[in-house]
């Protein structure tokens, strides 16, 4: 690629070698902490001294009733929230592609910049206010509602990005050939969007599966999620079981990210 020369071919920018050295250090800073965490998840010792390879912390994690229940809760919440957010967000992206809407865009942007803790307490205040009038309680369903709300913007962004690369004349052709608007959407645009929708769904899943701050505010007493369990364990102190669970979570999320990237590139 002659348009984008390598560092060595760019003598006018100072310190190419220094810059490369710096970049190595910066990448170590970004990635080493997690790698170390993962390495020590297979350490036989309870302490931060290497004593040999062992999977005992994984076994302990998988036999921990509370951890497994909270994992199940997290999966239920993430799957439900992803389903709703993906449908709602895809429809919204399609509508915004047809014609922009300042209000919707502003609302989505607001959902993105509102600090998590503010979103958490405002949803808590809202749910408590609603529950005064209806007989409901906090639980997994309130977590799902909160997650759908804050993950929709990610779905919209990913799907809209794909729509903008698409040729509008495909739909026009369908309409000219007698398809209704719904048919043009359902039969022409939606199939073309499928990979982007898949990518968006995976991102929504990750965001939901990961959230602690908002979840902890809107969770009921009997609806602990995995991040909540991890947080409680981390506060109590360092525990190799947390390393093991963390490694599993990073593995799962990493896999989903790779799949999502593949889908988006398609």
């Amino acid at each position: 690629m002659s348009a984008s020369p390598d560092l060595e071919q760019h003598p006018r920018i100072p310190g190419g070698r220094w810059l490369s050295t710096y970049a190595v250090l910066a990448y170590l800073f970004l990635h080493l902490p997690l790698l170390i965490l993962m390495v020590f998840s297979v350490n036989a010792s309870r302490f931060t001294v290497w004593e040999g390879f062992s999977l005992r912390w994984y076994a302990e994690a998988l036999h921990d009733q509370e951890l497994m229940e909270s994992t199940l809760n997290s999966l239920i919440v993430a799957i439900a929230a992803t389903g709703f957010a993906t449908v709602v967000g895809t429809l919204c992206a399609y509508a915004l592609w047809k014609r922009a809407s300042r209000w919707i865009a502003a609302g989505l942007a607001l959902s993105l910049v509102t600090p998590e803790i503010v979103m958490g307490i405002s949803l808590l205040a809202f749910f408590q206010w609603v529950f005064r009038h209806f007989d409901f309680r906090l639980g997994l369903h309130t977590i799902v509602l909160a997650h759908v709300m804050f993950s929709v913007v990610y779905v919209v962004t990913v799907v809209l990005a794909r729509l903008r690369t698409m040729d509008p004349s495909l739909e026009e052709a369908a309409l000219d050939l007698g398809a209704t608007d719904w048919q043009a959407f359902r039969r022409v645009t939606l199939p073309l969007l499928a990979p982007a929708i898949g990518a968006a769904a995976l991102l929504a899943f990750i965001i939901s599966f990961d959230d602690y701050v908002i979840t902890s505010m809107v969770a009921g007493v009997d609806s602990q999620t995995l991040p909540m369990a991890l947080y409680a364990m981390a506060r109590r102190g360092v525990n190799p079981v947390v390393n093991a669970i963390s490694t599993l979570v990073v593995g799962l999320v990493g896999t989903l990210i790779l799949v999502s990237e593949r889908l988006r590139a398609r």
Partner: peptide, 14 residues
């Protein structure tokens, strides 16, 4: 995209 909580815990560990 990697778990926020896990990455913070990684620094506690260090």
């Amino acid at each position: 995209w990697t778990s926020f909580l896990v990455r913070t815990y990684a620094w506690m560990f260090l």
